[in-house]
Simulated assay, not measured.
Amino acid sequence: MNAYLVGADVLGNIPDLLNRYGITIHKHVSGRHAAHQRKPASLKGVDLIILFTDFLGHNVMRHYRELANEENIRFVACRRSVCSLSQTLDKLGHCAGNPCDTCPQRKLH
């Protein structure tokens, strides 16, 4: 699964966490540059948009949410922390590592 990350200048441990969930970073933009604050031309090859809310303004978030809805791409919004992102991905039904036999999400993998 490929993810488009919006927000945060530095990702820290987030790439490692995403790898455990089987998610690859397709592209990362900080959201600070004026070009990042408008809708990108296309999200081709992206399966998930992750918006880090503690680093984004309302208009930037709105642009990316609208584009995600237009292109039928899932998006999540969370704080830029490993804990918050992990909880958000768990709610989406992703499991870190291999799911156990009793996991109700096993069929999603």
Rank of each mutant, 00 (worst) to 15 (best):
F52V: 04
Q87A: 14
C95W: 04
C100S: 15
G97R: 05
C83M: 12
I49K: 02
Q37N: 06
K39S: 05
K39C: 02
L51V: 00
D47S: 13
Y21T: 15
S86H: 15
I50V: 15
F75E: 01
N98C: 10
A96L: 07
I25N: 04
P40R: 05
Y64N: 12
A77N: 12
G22F: 01
R32V: 06
A96Q: 11
C100M: 12
N69I: 03
I23T: 08
Q87M: 13
L17C: 04
R74G: 06
S42E: 05
R62T: 11
L85E: 07
C100T: 15
Y64L: 10
S30Y: 03
V82A: 07
A41P: 06
C100G: 15
Y64E: 13
T53K: 15
H94T: 07
I25P: 02
I23K: 08
A96W: 01
F52L: 12
E70I: 12
A77L: 08
V29L: 09
I73F: 04
N98I: 15
R79C: 05
P104Q: 11
Y64H: 14
S81C: 03
A68K: 02
Q87K: 13
N59G: 06
K91F: 06
E70K: 15
L85Q: 07
Y21F: 09
T102L: 13
N98Q: 14
D54S: 09
H26T: 03
A77W: 00
Q105W: 11
C78W: 03
E66F: 00
Q87L: 14
N72T: 06
G57S: 01
S81Y: 03
R106H: 01
E70Q: 13
F52I: 08
R62K: 13
K91N: 08
